[in-house]
Design a binder for these strands. Structure first.
Lengths: 264, 264
DNA sequence: TTCTTAGTTCCATATATTGAAACTTACGTT
DNA sequence: AACGTAAGTTTCAATATATGGAACTAAGAA
């Protein structure tokens, strides 16, 4: 399989189209009607109709007959559960997250990287420890989050470049890094430091310190971060937590080692 | 495709086949090699190969080049996140689960029904509140769990019958209901009582009280249960919690009502 | 080396998918 | 009620796709 580069949009397969439709439905934040989907679909009515039908009979979508609306189906949740257990760091990392959470009492995130985007796979919140599902599975930008930069900094060059290409560089705040070069030079720092900082680059008043989780063969398998607000901590004060953070990251890496990991 | 046995479902579509393969991979509890999949696949080598390739390029599977193994991919997690927010009760129910958890201090489950099977969508555990991910997305049997019976009892007849057909009626314990008629007559009771009990029907020593969550048009949208052990509580004692349980279920139903149709 | 086994590619054929258009509801209007 | 309009569903020939037997390659084992 090594040499086969699939062109970005050259789906050309039924499965690809079906999944594209699934994405269109999932993107919307509420159940959608046939026409809502049709509106921004490249597929003609009849085709779309049958794609939706297929997805529905397969359980990837659920169809509400009364309202005539489609919504993502529960089969996805079941499948995701498998994905979770096998492919995510969450199960392995859980005890270490719990421990770190106890120690620092701040919000902590566990993330993985996927096509240059950050995928949050677990979370602990000081006040309210079970807000998890609202975050698990959520994606975030790579270029302006602590975990994103921590992971990208340690990617092997080809992957890193690819990840950089996928960034939107939207200026969320005045501190956001808005171009590839700024990001690259920060990566150098991050590799030296061993940790990445989010200096209010994503949201004003929100800062974080993040560490990559690396496998023994130096591959990025995730990242861990401690997030807080400028009201509670300065960046310097937050930095005091670095040893704890790095320690947790290392423990997770080691625990993960004993488990087999597909990655990327 | 002159197959010897009737394929799993009358799939007959590429998407169905691809998803079947995805299921085969997801079912295994660890990353699988090509041949592992081939072994219990109805598809010839070449076909399977391309199905796996498709799934991989689509991100539903991830492929570990080093180990040459396939595992469920992170795209599933992203999709599931959408499914979760739109189609599950979890986000709406969260505050009520938290409150109920505080009040009763016992394990509580939030579930939905899917093809006669119970899908656990959220959980609170007294001692150790963050065991969630091990359960969220997990499926369980309908005929021998409190939430399962609570939901099935209030399904409209056609759906109920369909759900009953999907039960395996495996005798987990000596109290398990092992046939459709026993189940049906219990449904009558449940509808009268308003709650369902699990009298050690699934696991010895484990009992629960469960209430359905019904929409204003009397459709089943989920169920809520309080679980404990016979060592701590008798069924009668557990029953004392009924008002709290019903109250929470009602609150969730009401909250869901406002969420379902905010506009559109 | 040669023999296996696992994984990948070829290519003529069979099959599933396609989409314009016709059809059927469902619904709002007069 | 009749009409008009929009949403959703079905048909069917043309076509793009998937299929799978077999040939091929790569990597280990004997």
């Amino acid at each position: 399989m090594g040499s086969m580069e699939t062109p970005p949009e050259a789906t050309g397969g039924t499965v690809g189209k079906a999944l594209h439709v699934l994405d269109m439905v999932a993107e919307k934040m509420r159940p959608v009607r046939f026409n809502d989907v049709l509106a921004n679909s490249p597929y003609p009515k009849a085709t779309l109709y049958r794609l939706l039908q297929t997805l529905t009979t397969q359980g990837l979508l659920s169809y509400d007959e009364e309202r005539q609306t489609y919504a993502p189906g529960m089969r996805l949740v079941r499948l995701a559960h498998s994905a979770w257990r096998q492919s995510s760091l969450a199960p392995v990392a859980r005890p270490f997250l719990d421990a770190l959470s106890q120690e620092v009492g701040e919000t902590i995130h566990l993330a993985q990287i996927d096509h240059g985007q950050v995928l949050y796979v677990d979370k602990r919140n000081a006040a309210q420890p079970v807000e998890m599902f609202s975050q698990a599975g959520k994606v975030g930008p790579g270029y302006c989050t602590g975990v994103g930069k921590a992971m990208m900094a340690f990617l092997k060059p080809a992957d890193q470049e690819q990840a950089i290409q996928n960034q939107s560089f939207f200026r969320h705040t005045e501190h956001t890094l808005t171009n590839a070069d700024a990001l690259r030079s920060e990566f150098a720092e991050i590799r030296e430091e061993g940790v990445a900082y989010d200096r209010e680059e994503h949201e004003p008043g929100i800062i974080c310190i993040a560490a990559p989780i690396l496998s023994s063969n130096s591959r990025v398998i995730g990242a861990l971060s401690i997030t807080t607000t400028t009201h509670k901590y300065s960046l310097e004060a937050l930095n005091e937590l670095r040893p704890l953070l790095l320690n947790a990251a290392n423990e997770i890496a080691q625990a993960a080692e004993n488990w087999q990991f597909p990655s990327s």
